[in-house]
Design a protein around this nucleic acid. Sequence first.
DNA 1: AGAGCACTGATCC
DNA 2: GGATCAGTGCTCT
Length: 105
Amino acid sequence: MIIKKEGVYLLLKQIPSGKVTTYKALANLLHTKGYRAIGQIVKNNPFAPIVPCHRVVRSDGSLGGYMGQISGPLIQKKKKLLLHEGVVCEGNKIRDFKKVFTDLK
DNA sequence: AGAGCACTGATCC
DNA sequence: GGATCAGTGCTCT
């Protein structure tokens, strides 16, 4: 199965403020199991400022990574961004994950 | 061409 | 219940 990376960006741009999605959801929408590939696509996204890559998290509620760092100051910034948008985080995970989660369907 | 990765589900302990 | 294995597809070296 081939992931259409443009589809990933398209989906990401459709995430409303205050909502997040997961790699799994994206993979499901793209009909693929290459979850990690989506991580790579998002990480190396050529639309860094345009695509809200901080709204993509792991299916277990953890933040995943941000701009090449799976942990570090960038992650803290990601948390702050999400919090500013209404997504409450606790530690490296999202608190009301189900509430802020959207699969864009 | 080969290795790595912002993942996930299934096994193994 | 946590740790590890296997499958997956794109990007970088």
